Computed example of a mutant assay.
Amino acid sequence: MEQKDKDIFEHTTKFNTGIRLYMFQTGTIKTKVKFIKMNQGEEPYEIPIPWFLIKHPQGDVIIDGGMPIEAALDKHKHWGSLVDVYDPVMKASEWCRDQVKTVNTNPEDVKNVIQTHLHLDHSGAIGHFPNATHITQRIEYDYAYNPDWFSQPAYIKEDFDKPNIRWKFLQGKKTDYFDLYGDGVIKIIFTPGHTPGHQSVLVNLPKTGHMLLTGDACYTGDHWCDKCLPGLVASASDAADSVAKLRKIAKETNAKVVWGHDPVTWLQWNKAPMFYYD
């Protein structure tokens, strides 16, 4: 190995030391199958609400943050009649701002909050980490303020319309595969369909390798296998294209794939605070 290659290898190895991915959960939502798997039935269906924390030498990163604290304190006041369709089951102690402390991260340590999208079950971190930049797609941010009628209940304006939030807006295909820290560890992938500005996250860990966090671009294994669409979509064709895109990425990177709300496969992952992926 030439000296230049040795220097690059040693720098990368040192830089990647301590990178960890933690998988958290902010309770569940009780609903019906048809609202998760389009046209699939009236049976009760309970889904997990995951969120993720990545410890990184350049600053800790939260992905989504799960449900906001208001869903635990007064769900009827905050979500209104939507509770009749999507009923949140959450303890106050499950809020992301409190859970980060269980893995020795202070709220002030969080440098970036990546929003896959701005729906009410993904908005728990917004505005609650004082040093964080919040990263979303520009089209998602704009749509959240003026959604189509069928998507309007999924956006709670009070969750994201807050003062003093530092936003960083990505620009769809123009910024696709945005590399957050420039080291290949965290890449943001444009995956519209569930919402116009949905994005997924590809994480490259030193030991585990690639992990693909689909977010709601793919709720469950049925979506991954083209057996159904999500229960809520802004564009069915975009949703199908995004799943195909993610499957291609997973194959090319040999990634472990984490679906957005799959109640079966979610049980198989190692959960924080005790466990992590590195």
Rank of each mutant, 00 (worst) to 15 (best):
D148G: 12
D148R: 14
F150H: 14
F150E: 08
F150A: 07
S151E: 09
Q152D: 15
Q152A: 15
Q152H: 04
Q152C: 07
P153A: 13
P153C: 07
P153V: 08
P153Y: 05
A154V: 12
A154R: 05
A154G: 05
Y155I: 08
Y155F: 14
I156C: 01
I156M: 03
K157D: 01
K157E: 11
E158I: 01
E158P: 01
D159E: 06
D159P: 00
F160S: 00
F160P: 00
F160L: 00
F160T: 00
D161R: 01
D161S: 03
D161H: 07
K162I: 14
K162W: 00
P163D: 05
P163S: 03
N164M: 02
N164Y: 04
I165S: 08
I165L: 10
I165N: 06
I165R: 04
R166C: 11
K168F: 11
K168D: 11
F169K: 10
F169M: 14
Q171S: 14
Q171R: 12
Q171Y: 11
G172T: 14
K173M: 10
K173Q: 08
K174M: 11
K174A: 15
K174N: 13
D176T: 14
Y177E: 14
D179T: 08
D179L: 10
D179E: 10
L180K: 01
L180I: 06
L180R: 04
Y181R: 04
Y181H: 11
G182F: 05
G182A: 09
G182Q: 07
